[in-house]
Design a protein around this nucleic acid. Structure first.
Length: 203
DNA sequence: ACTACGATTACCT
DNA sequence: GGTAATCGTAGTG
């Protein structure tokens, strides 16, 4: 996959305007692309988590809108970037505006712009380049300034489908790092992909 | 204004 | 396996 698939266009808003678990599973195998310094950086999404609009105490939207989570309540396809532990994580907003649902992108398989991504991470090993939600934001230089951007527009941050990419077998399990609703199987990974942040618990 | 805490990561044994 | 580092957000006074 030598060249980034920028000619294929971003996923349409209708892709995101569906039940969040469906969007989370369908985002696997898509390309996350970041235009920076005249080059495209990014990779293939291999791990996601769904955060639901209702009955999900782990979601940032659970206690209603605040200044910090406002973009989570905006149109489907909006980018929601939030800070945590002095780092950042990236979500795609799902379902209709006002719902407060999103998909956290937890890991990508690094493909395009390996040299600049290694520089941003101060690391060489591909396994630790983008295999975590804050790692991939650091590799792609995404921070709070990008919060609220439209992922469906032709901007510097896009999620696009890869034509001719074989559908990957998807598996699910409990989400990582949360304190509430830990048993819901809302984490989705491409089976056996080595670039996930952690393996699924043994079934 | 003060304080507690987190959808994390890196580094340690 | 465990834990310290780090800082913006949100809740409280």
């Amino acid at each position: 996959m030598p060249l980034p698939p920028v000619g294929e266009g971003s996923l349409p808003r209708s892709f995101y305007d569906r039940p969040t678990e469906i969007v989370a599973a369908d985002l696997l195998g898509k390309a996350l692309l970041r235009r920076l310094g005249g080059k495209w950086l990014g990779g293939i999404i291999v791990e996601t988590e769904a955060y639901l609009a209702e009955h999900d105490l782990a979601s940032h939207s659970a206690r209603g809108p605040t200044r910090g989570n406002a973009s989570m309540f905006r149109a489907p396809g909006t980018l929601y970037v939030y800070p945590i532990h002095a780092k950042h994580c990236l979500n795609a907003v799902t379902e209709r505006a006002g719902r407060g649902a999103a998909v956290l992108i937890r890991a990508v398989e690094p493909v395009w712009g390996l040299t600049p991504m290694k520089r941003h991470r101060s690391r060489e090993d591909l396994r630790r380049l983008t295999s975590g939600p804050a790692m991939l934001c650091q590799a792609l230089r995404i921070d709070r300034d990008h919060d609220g951007l439209d992922l469906t527009a032709s901007g510097s941050l896009r999620i696009v489908a890869l034509s001719g990419h074989p559908p990957a077998p998807v598996r699910s399990g409990p989400r990582i790092g949360i304190r509430h609703d830990t048993d819901l199987p809302l984490r989705f990974v491409i089976a056996d992909n080595p670039f996930v942040s952690r393996k699924l618990p043994q079934a």
